[in-house]
Write a protein that binds this DNA or RNA. Structure first.
Lengths: 217, 217, 217, 217
DNA sequence: GATGAATGAGCCTTCATTCAT
DNA sequence: TATGAATGAAGGCTCATTCAT
């Protein structure tokens, strides 16, 4: 009765699958808005349901709890961002470009998805609050993002292009600065200077990573 | 009954004032612990009252709402931290030392007050979430902290000690990195390498601020 | 296609009727398990549907509500039990045997259908709770069961075999005791002594019904 | 500040204690009505709160959960009933009177507290449903009630006043019959014949317990 | 001032029932 | 006829805030 004529071995997506996928995505998108605007605690499942144009009970057909919606929302955003970072960083021709790409892609993504940025920051805060407890999934997501940058830096160190620094620590520094950059832009709303700030950061870091001339510390 | 024999125009602290001050301080300290451990939403006024050894109703004699307690708690910590930063940055003999002092004093303060750090991060997230709304008080507090650093950098730029960069942007970069540093230490718990990380950051930034040799971007 | 060769005027069961009957029976059986295990309120229509291997919506094609399923389930069990009681009590040669049969058949039936016993007891409680409200169907079912016993006792009274007691009241007493007996066995799980208890009860009642010797009340 | 002038070593009940006790009692009484009328599941905490003229939240100051209210309500009734049974059974001069007292006191108590009787029956059903699980507290309460009767019967057996029967089993039989008696009265509402029924039961049992004349089974 | 009992609004979650396919 | 996705009412419980003592 449902079409089964599929040549691919993997998955002949039935109509139900499509609907289900549509709903899940729609709920996640609504949740992104609601969680982004109100934070986890202030967000209500009712609001998420409304925002995705379904009844409250329907939400629970797709996610078992408010917490689960939140996690799925966070994970979805992180996965997308991670994919973009990987893509752009790997495409970069030079180490400098890779750093710039890293900062830029994060800035762009968060600029385009301010709701998600709020979730992202809140989740970060939550992690700090839970201090030493779980940290599992979201920590891994962060790790995956910096890993690409770290690899680039390590390679540049090896090639002598930049001075011998701890690649991980340097990557994290870039990471932190790009986060601050986005936060400030979202807070203040000055979208104009985004590219200038990106360039500034890249330059600051790149210069900071240059091989020493003569005197050092 | 209370002493009224005061010559100064400002404030002859009566016994009531002293008690009031004591209570307010005690509540703030309790709130720091409670908010730090549970976050704003999960924290209960009851818990704060218990932690400061007064009845719930008493808390409301000193602060009009849970929100107000939170704000006062945040403000108190920020004020203290700001004082320390100013002190240490101004004492620094050189620009490099000032930067290092900035990073170090923040790292130390947050390390000593992890509860406050959690509040600090959460408040940051909250600001981002409220995006464009209030931002008033807490933003000012942050400004005050970076201002000292910015001044130092601006002076170093003027003296030619470092290359001509946007002092404000540079200060914020240092600010962001130091925040990330503390967060990671609290999350992972590796207290040992704090000084090494501080030194790394200082070095990275300082190098990044050096006058260009020949080639640049 | 379906056999229409029926001489009786009543019902030539069409294929639809058969399927319908099958479904209804299957749902009732599933409901007996589910209601028995969880009680009315905790039981879900979903669980009943699953247990009878149909979709939730299908259940509503055969019964208009959860309440209706419950009632049908109760009625079905009561009807079956009633049939058994009638059969065995009428077969009994003597009044004593009739009493024993009454107790025994109830004990056996409930022992074999513990799920139904739970429904039975719950329904009893529900009746008491609804006090004076419905009472219709289930009360009649109970009446029918005791009626057989009552008739036997009345006859024995008439024949002088036992002393002149209120046959209805005596029947109810037997009824109550047998219920308690089963309940205790199900609660405690001591299946071994069932026959001993039955014998004890029969003896107690039988003796209690003996014509007075000399002194009475 | 509060009066501490109490000579008794045990407990100088402060005003708070009195208020607390009053509230707890008032909630229990309201709960008895509500649970009695609707059953556990259909009863709402809101309704209990209303019935005891407090706000919903207040109920939770005195009992941690709906379940806890229920248990306390049941326990309170059982304790009171148990006390009455003990009292009356012990006062009885003869075994026959003790049996009669047992039946009568239960009938009276339940007649006076029909709401509690509904809870009592429902709890019984619930026990059967939970079959083999906990059974703790409420089972003990029942045990305590039959124990008094059992003792009387055992003594009568020992003195040869009645024939040698299993005292426990006989007590339970009386127990079951008295429960059925009450249930029927509540269901049908015929209050008039209560004493007649009590007398009938007592007579039936008493006769049933008489030493055998000649022939037995 | 200090207390803590009382309040009641608010929210997550479940599930009987409906209905489009 | 059979399905199961969608609905939305309902209720237990928490907790910020108030207020009588």
């Amino acid at each position: 009765m449902t079409d089964k004529s599929s040549s691919a071995a993997s998955a002949p997506p039935s109509k139900e699958d499509v609907v289900t996928e549509f709903r899940r995505r729609s709920i996640i998108e609504a949740a992104r808005r609601v969680f982004g605007e109100r934070g986890f605690e202030q967000a209500t499942v009712e609001a998420i349901a409304e925002a995705s144009a379904v009844a409250k009970g329907t939400v629970y057909l797709y996610y078992p709890s408010k917490q689960a919606i939140y996690e799925a929302t966070f994970a979805a955003g992180m996965a997308e961002l991670g994919r973009l970072i990987l893509e752009r960083v790997e495409q970069a021709a030079t180490a400098r470009e890779a750093i710039q790409a890293f900062v830029a892609v994060r800035a762009e993504y968060f600029q385009q998805h301010p709701d998600f940025f709020r979730i992202y920051v809140a989740e970060f805060a939550r992690q700090v609050a839970a201090s030493g407890t779980l940290r599992g999934a979201s920590q891994q997501a962060l790790d995956r993002q910096t890993r690409a940058l770290k690899k680039v830096i390590a390679r540049a160190v090896a090639s002598g292009e930049i001075r011998p620094v701890d690649a991980g620590a340097a990557a994290l520094a870039v990471f932190d600065m790009s986060k601050g950059l986005v936060a400030r832009h979202l807070l203040i709303g000055s979208k104009a200077s985004a590219s200038r700030d990106i360039e500034f950061l890249t330059d600051l870091i790149w210069t900071g990573l240059q091989p020493a001339r003569g005197q050092k510390k």
